[in-house]
Design a binder for these strands. Sequence first.
DNA 1: CTGTTAGCGCTTTCAG
DNA 2: CTGAAAGCGCTAACAG
Lengths: 322, 322
Amino acid sequence: MTVSRVVNGDPRVKASTRERVQQAIEELHYYPNAAARALNSKRTMTVGLILPKIDYVLSEPYFSQLIYQIEQAISPYNYDILVVSGLHQNGKDLTRLYKQKKVDGLIIVGSEINDQRLIAISDNRIPAVLIHGRSELPGLSFVDVDNYKIIEFFVNHLSSLGHRRLGFITGDLTVVNAYHRLQAYKKALKDRSLPLDKTLICTGNWSAGSGYDAFLHFYGLSELPTAVISSNDHMAIGFLKAANEHQIAIPQDISLVGIDDIEMAQFTVPTLTTMRQPMEALASQAVDFLMESIKSEASERFSSILEAELVLRNSCAPARSS
Amino acid sequence: MTVSRVVNGDPRVKASTRERVQQAIEELHYYPNAAARALNSKRTMTVGLILPKIDYVLSEPYFSQLIYQIEQAISPYNYDILVVSGLHQNGKDLTRLYKQKKVDGLIIVGSEINDQRLIAISDNRIPAVLIHGRSELPGLSFVDVDNYKIIEFFVNHLSSLGHRRLGFITGDLTVVNAYHRLQAYKKALKDRSLPLDKTLICTGNWSAGSGYDAFLHFYGLSELPTAVISSNDHMAIGFLKAANEHQIAIPQDISLVGIDDIEMAQFTVPTLTTMRQPMEALASQAVDFLMESIKSEASERFSSILEAELVLRNSCAPARSS
DNA sequence: CTGTTAGCGCTTTCAG
DNA sequence: CTGAAAGCGCTAACAG
């Protein structure tokens, strides 16, 4: 049909015919059948968005923001997104969606360390990009934030305020990001020749509840840290809550910082000093990389590391002169 | 092919052949092509999830929870979900996804009052169900929470604590839910013969910032309300923040309640009394209704109104005897 | 510039 | 119980 040409913007159609067809399309509310198109064009115009395995992630507003940003970024390409939680059965085989030809590529959020699922993706040459993850696998692109810089900045910031006992609350350590942040903490202490005290490292799992527990852990120590770096805002909020219940004042007794700049960070008492994730850039880069991978059959890798932005609020104070 | 029969569990295959085919499928990592299937079976095994138009929704953890629950509920049906924000262009024509044959039906979250888009859906006999919405349109099912009961309960609760000046913070009044809650507030006051003071009704938009502003509004009044009902937790948290900054103690000076029971409601100071949304039930009912509508060509309507559950925490106190 | 032919990978329907 | 034929709605390649 000539219709097909009009729909696809093929120039080889007389202007007048095009007009007539356009009009008919409008009148009949005609939409081309995506399944039929996908069947022979090998393009589904859909990408899969794989959310992390851990189940509390979706209670974090952070992820819904990300979904939103990705949707915004991909919409100019006329793509839709299929959202799959890594949690359940389907998540086991990330290649399913692609092999079924339901999607042209995958965006994977917050992959785990040594995620075996990524190998299958690379082996099958599935266009894919990781957000908040890294991989050396051929064909796998990634976009991440510079975790080292974030932590290094905070360690410097806090130690320049006179703090020497810096506590650290990790995220879920099976997740790449959490691990990097912990490494960065250790390195930064070393760089500033601050002592590394293992009791000041508390393993959390990103949830507010685990931040609450982290406070309890520190509170049980013979000496409190004078400042604490939390691997995300969520845990910092839990920490704040526990501190409040135990009459430990933030920031007077303990300075506290988080990461992400979730909306709630402005509404805590005191407001939370944190690092804002460049979420829009993260999303749009990821989308651009993925579109590039889908277009070019050659499985190139793209990657970029973005910088977080400091948001200075009221949860830090100089260390008490002792 | 016999393969097709095996894949679709057709019983008319010899057991031995079935085994051999199964094995080949495993070995070759074969997955049937969804586009081809969709093309002649008229089933895409995908549903569209339409999120609200308003852009701050996605900063609410509430919605990501919902996405998660829907995903869980639909996965046994072997369906995937395509997520579309109502915000941008595509949202204008909700029928697009269906007409393109990309989805078999739609789940629409938090529709607006007199949402024109719904008419097109009904007219086109697109299987659809509203979550947090109502509609009398033929073929449109819905699942909602009993907003009247929620508000009525709170009004009774607070007035039985001796409060007579009850403030109310609305959500975005273009949204069905927000409107119902406001109506319920007015009705409940009337039922208890409490005076309706318009200055005690403050129009918010669901965001924490608007809750903050609501406090400021009440604070500017010649007399503060002694208790405030916020149409969601998010705004209650903003309110809490503003109150704290102005040395108004919650609950001593003002009692406060929210709705939703978002995770943060446990981490505020004081913790927030609220109503938990039956989110899992909401999601699974919606999915069941939708699957039913998709199966039966007859455009039946299903609906159910679920009850929220009280979560009593520390943000309410008896009114001061004056 | 427009129409015809063929085929994408499946699931019918109808024969064997 | 298994195979062969036809067609879902589109686009690519070729004629006209």
